[in-house]
Amino acid sequence: MSDSKPVVTKAYHQPLGDKLWRHFVIGVPYFWLLLFFLAPFSIVLKISFATPIVAQPPFTQLFDFTGNASQWLLATWDNYQFLTEDNLYWVSYFKSIKIAAVSTFICLLVGYPMAYGIARATPTTRNILLMLVILPFWTSFLLRVYAWMGLLGKHGIVNSLLMNIGLIDSPMQMLYTDMAVYLGIVYTYIPFMILPLYATLEKMDTSLHDAAADLGAKPWQTFIDVTLPLSMPGIIAGSLLVFIPAIGEYVIPALLGGIDSLMIGRTLYDEFFVNRDWPLASAVATILLIIVVIPIMLFQRSQQEQE
């Protein structure tokens, strides 16, 4: 408190410099977003309204000022219309949402007790446990997915083990199934669930739990009535952090999933690099962004209403 006074006087004496500085500080992240998010996205959006051609770049320009004024704009909805017509895209979107949603839910179920355990551990154990959660990030993500292929393959470690103990006679099909995709996504993204959950659970006032018990709540009732609602910000943050990257996940379904586990990331890749249909691929990407942004906006609105 004592050193807050000089700062106030300083700001009072240098109103202009202070104002400029504030604009600068706020401006930098906005500029960053503008440069690396809004600008690329505008380009993608622009391409999504173009027509594919065999050329370099492989799409038409949006504007052609050679003809008369009414024909300058060459934008077309064709790509978006095509998305609704071909079943493939519906299936991929739906499958992506389903896989992402189920994985998020599994992450929550597995991650919550882990986060709770870490938050309630003694400070020393807590640091070790947090380290263990973050440790996998020190190895390349791709390597870890390949490791799962080694584990789940026909002659992989899990199958050999199960056959050796005699639980199964012939190798189970584990790799190239939806289960392998779920496993891969949950394994990869669970730290993003645990960390925000841990942050909310750790700062929760334990006397609230005592108070609930004191008023007659059994341990499970305390959890439902107090712990769970108060950890909601962590649950939502963790779920968004898992759901959003999982929905556009490409590597995991490509390496661990079967031919039928067609997620939107795979479709997107195929459109861009196999079919070289950039405008259609851009339309797919734009819709994906909308699917992801809408739940976030709904969530933020509900947060504001609560305030």
């Binding site: 006032d205 005592d210 609930a212 018990a213 009535d225 107090v226």
Partner: peptide, 28 residues
């Protein structure tokens, strides 16, 4: 604790922040 015939007023008050005054009081 939940079966004892005692109740406690906590130093930090431990009022449930997500419940209204009424909900807090009726909780027990």
């Amino acid at each position: 604790a939940y079966d004892r015939p005692v109740n406690m007023m906590f130093q930090s008050y431990a009022v449930f922040p997500h419940m209204t005054v009424e909900q807090n009081i009726s909780y027990g």
